[in-house]
Design a protein around this nucleic acid. Sequence first.
DNA 1: AACGCATCCAACCGCGGATAT
DNA 2: CATATCCGCGGTTGGATGCGT
Length: 251
Amino acid sequence: MGRSPCCEKAHMNKGAWTKEEDQLLVDYIRKHGEGCWRSLPRAAGLQRCGKSCRLRWMNYLRPDLKRGNFTEEEDELIIKLHSLLGNKWSLIAGRLAGRTDNEIKNYWNTHIKRKLLSRGIDPNNHRPINESSSPNDVVEPPQVDFSTGPDQQITIKPEPVVLDREVVNNNNNNNCTSSGTTSDDDWVLNLELSVGPSSTRKANIDSAESTRLLLETQAAVCLCCRIGFRDESCRNCRVSDVRTIWESKIL
DNA sequence: AACGCATCCAACCGCGGATAT
DNA sequence: CATATCCGCGGTTGGATGCGT
């Protein structure tokens, strides 16, 4: 019944990795590639659990990692992404080449939170801490209306997300779904989209689940495009039809 | 130099979804 | 179908380091 245990829990090393352990892990992955973290430690001759190996590789040993300080552009991008996604560090990391979710999470907690507070912005909701702050300095999370009409069509009408003009203009070389052309519209991303599953089955989905799935879908499909950073290596970017994902989740 | 406090960040923990048996 | 484990994620911890006194 069930799988066999991946490893003996006893006699496993914990804590900081040694150079020798790092070398064993790097050598093994260079030779055999990533994957099957369950069997990797034994095969590589490591007294570590697979989970620990995966973490070490992903957050520290991967050759494509960009070490060093975050740039101002990365700072701003993280802030924008966080305003859209919240603490979805892995999604945010997916939009910053060479950065890990752990690194971004740490950086957020140690630097960016403080930076936002110094700007008078609440890092939790990206709203001004006091009412006198300028609303244009803030990225509001999209407000989604899940009310259903007589035809049961669910309409998502998020508020426009007002972004910093300079940052958005930096993204203008990318033509993925940001609305407007070259006017002031450039700094307002139109997130409006409409989803209308036709099956009667959708009526059986409770509203909380609908909300969850729609938010999930919206975030998954539009994240990269919404901020103008389409990336073909990102699965979500390659999915162009919101309805396809929506229906795949509920049908 | 010594101490205490603050900050940083690698690593661990626990959880939920996916998957193998 | 039930159960146990894998995998990946976000939250948290604690040792190392920096800094001020």
